[in-house]
Design a protein around this nucleic acid. Sequence first.
DNA 1: TCCTGTGAAATGCTTCACAGCG
DNA 2: CGCTGTGAAGCATTTCACAGGA
Lengths: 219, 219
Amino acid sequence: MSGIERKMTPLAFDRIPSPVIRRLSLYLRQFEVFRAAGIMTLSSRQLGDALALTDVQVRKDLACLGALGHAGIGYDTNELVSRLHHVLGTDQDWDVVLIGAGNLGSALASYGGFAAKRFRIVGIFDLDPGLAPRSSLDAIVLPMERLEEFVARHGIRLALVAVPGPAAQAVVDRLSKAGIEGVLNFAPVTVTPPAGVKMISVDLAIQLEQLAFQVRAGK
Amino acid sequence: MSGIERKMTPLAFDRIPSPVIRRLSLYLRQFEVFRAAGIMTLSSRQLGDALALTDVQVRKDLACLGALGHAGIGYDTNELVSRLHHVLGTDQDWDVVLIGAGNLGSALASYGGFAAKRFRIVGIFDLDPGLAPRSSLDAIVLPMERLEEFVARHGIRLALVAVPGPAAQAVVDRLSKAGIEGVLNFAPVTVTPPAGVKMISVDLAIQLEQLAFQVRAGK
DNA sequence: TCCTGTGAAATGCTTCACAGCG
DNA sequence: CGCTGTGAAGCATTTCACAGGA
């Protein structure tokens, strides 16, 4: 297959059901594991076993990207990795700003997992720019006043928000005005995304609470 | 349980649909916000507006806890807060161990949000116990050898795993043998939970990837 | 035979429409 | 009236069953 590469048509991404999109990231992660192990081809069954999904579900999901499987063989590891990166948007570099250089913020700043997916934290902002969060940071902590200019100058579209809860909504509103289009919010409060801004919120305490529920329910 | 209050029947928690359970944590967080503002009663409409959900969905969800609303009035803030805490399991203290005292691990150790929900990190374990992660920690970093004894002695049921990806599966297996029943995993790999262990995984890079997708798709 | 892809059935969740209470 | 609770309808997602290629 792939003489020179397959077509990479944009496809109708907006019609992929969101449960599928969430799983695509898992497929990608898993394909990369198998590829690193030198496995060139993978069946929907193998992939499903690894991720605790059925083989049919894997096939239905991957079919959303177009017919990429090979009957009798499975899916080509390299092909799927690049296809999934393309669909998910990680076939390009993304510059990101981080707001908040406290405990969580500095952990995010030095977290290696982002760089592995081509996300680069190019600016860190905090009310107190004196905070030198941790040892080796790629970026320096800047005062909030510099935010708008920095975002505009670098054409940044994504932001990580790791500020205290009470500050979060105002920060997100300000980011929106500065031109940010996507926010990954770690503040443990409900934040209403301004028009035109996509937001995903991760509340660590809520995740633990959900786990406690499952453990108690034996579910 | 407690004299006056409502009955707090266990109900059939295991039949609450999981999308509902995820939202219950959001309702709880929101009820607490309104309660802190001195608001004693809340309608499904108000709650829905705050969380970008329809009023019907809020009512259907809360109906899973039994008929707690008051027609013409709404839901009693105090009543719902304690009911939700009871259902979700945060009406009791949970002792938690943390495995991994690197960047993310030490941020988790000093994250205030857990304590606010009555989760207490009582032990931190790392291959390198010399790591004194950050300033004021409630717990000291212990060597991995002490894990089993510690978990057994304190009767701990929940663990946070913030170790490097390649170590995660082995750590989770070991935690399971030590008696842990629930794992909140931050390692960016697929981990298969041992029998009898509930697991929730949070992959920060995947969240950012999902956000990038949404931004690019304009969806 | 081992595999993918896909209509069709089954399931689960959300939304609608409305009965009923304070 | 305003607001809850709920059967029924409407949608979305998952699972089933099977056709067909290598």
